[in-house]
Amino acid sequence: MSKLLDQLYEKHVFQNLTIPTGALVGIHAPGNYYPNLNGEQGFISTWLPIKEPYFMEKEPVWHDFDQMCYFAGGDAAQMDQLGGVVEFHLGDENGNLEKLIITKPTVIYIKAGMIHCPLNFVDVFDPKKPILFQDLTFAGVYRRYRPGSTEPLNEKFEPITKTW
């Protein structure tokens, strides 16, 4: 490779970011994860194939950054179909929640401060055509908060030190 191409790969191209099968409880196929490797983007992406019913998030949370959740079907020949049923709770900063029943490809914009979850993948019609779930986080460090709290927690609900 050329020197320029080496520099571009080092700073702008990230590969081999696979989450191995079994690394996340309930995820039974490899996924992809971009954890803001060089700390410059302020962006984290997780892309997971959901092959069977899975209660991913059981508690309501909020973030101090914007987030987008993308639910797509795993059948490339029928991109207009989700291939399952997902329950996602979405609410406001006052803790009021409504349950959304998702049965077709959907993107949900979650504004900073907006309470959301639980997230439950209720049914997957064909495990060979999983529901594809992408979580786009617009922050350099993933953190969540329980409603009414300002203590930052990691993805396992463990306290984290403020580093942003």
Rank of each mutant, 00 (worst) to 15 (best):
M1V: 10
M1Q: 08
K3G: 09
L4P: 03
L5K: 13
H12K: 11
V13L: 15
N16V: 02
L17G: 14
P20R: 10
A23L: 06
L24M: 15
G26H: 07
A29L: 09
G31Y: 01
N32D: 06
Y33C: 01
Y33I: 00
Y33H: 09
G39L: 09
E40T: 13
G42K: 08
I44K: 00
T46A: 11
W47M: 04
Y54A: 06
E59K: 13
H63E: 04
H63Y: 07
D66N: 14
M68Q: 12
Y70R: 02
G73V: 04
A76K: 08
A77M: 09
A77Q: 14
Q78C: 03
Q78Y: 07
M79K: 15
L82H: 01
V85T: 15
E87K: 12
F88T: 06
V107T: 13
A112R: 11
M114N: 08
N120K: 13
F121L: 03
F121P: 03
V122R: 12
K128L: 07
K128N: 12
P130T: 02
P130M: 06
I131S: 00
L132I: 09
L132H: 04
F133N: 00
F133M: 01
T137D: 05
F138T: 00
Y142C: 01
R144Y: 02
K156H: 11
K156R: 11
F157D: 09
F157R: 06
W164T: 07
